[in-house]
Simulated scan of single mutants.
Amino acid sequence: MPWWSWILIWVALVSLSLLFFVVMGVRLFRQFMATVKELGEAGEKLTRLPVPAAVPAGVHAAADPELPGIAPGMAPFASPHQMRHDYHAAKEARREARRQHRIRRKAERGQPQSLRDIEFR
């Protein structure tokens, strides 16, 4: 094999590898630009979303009118103190409803009541 064939082989290998890197670079750039475009569109959509007004303290729009709370889906806009209060109030209401159901069920069956179900309050 003549000496100049080695030069041709190496020139072809280097040029093919450079061509590969250029094609991969262009592809990566296009993907990056598509991502930036989608992020821009998402940012525009978020800026156009209506921000719900905070629910006044006296108005409760919860699903159950007798339980305090705010409208469903408004938790991120409420104060942590209000959400903590609403959580504990709802938890206590559920606990009391279970206790009343347990008392009613035992009374219907004629079973003795548990000491924990008797109201000492």
Score class of each variant (00 low, 15 high):
P72H: 00
G73V: 07
G73K: 04
G73E: 09
M74A: 12
M74Y: 06
M74S: 10
A75K: 10
A75M: 08
A75C: 06
P76W: 01
P76R: 03
P76K: 05
F77Q: 03
F77Y: 04
F77P: 00
A78P: 04
A78E: 13
A78Q: 01
A78F: 00
S79I: 06
S79T: 15
S79L: 11
S79R: 06
S79F: 02
S79Y: 01
P80R: 15
P80E: 14
P80S: 14
H81G: 09
H81A: 15
H81D: 11
H81P: 00
Q82V: 03
Q82A: 11
Q82L: 12
M83T: 13
M83R: 11
R84I: 09
R84E: 15
H85R: 14
H85N: 09
H85Y: 15
D86E: 15
D86L: 08
D86K: 04
Y87L: 12
Y87M: 13
H88E: 10
H88Y: 10
A89W: 08
A90D: 08
A90Q: 15
A90Y: 00
A90I: 05
A90M: 09
K91A: 11
K91L: 13
A93C: 01
A93T: 01
A93F: 04
A93Y: 02
R94E: 08
R94K: 11
R94P: 01
R94N: 08
R95W: 00
R95I: 00
E96K: 12
E96C: 06
A97S: 04
A97C: 00
A97F: 00
A97Q: 02
R98H: 05
R98G: 02
R98I: 05
R98Y: 03
R98M: 09
R98A: 11
R99M: 06
R99L: 14
Q100E: 13
Q100F: 11
H101Q: 12
H101T: 07
H101D: 13
H101K: 10
I103K: 02
I103V: 14
I103H: 04
I103T: 04
R104T: 09
R104K: 15
R104E: 09
R104Y: 07
R105D: 06
R105Y: 01
K106V: 06
K106D: 05
K106F: 02
A107V: 14
E108I: 06
E108W: 11
R109L: 15
R109G: 02
G110S: 05
G110L: 08
Q111M: 14
Q111A: 15
P112I: 12
P112A: 12
P112D: 13
P112Y: 11
Q113W: 09
S114I: 03
S114W: 15
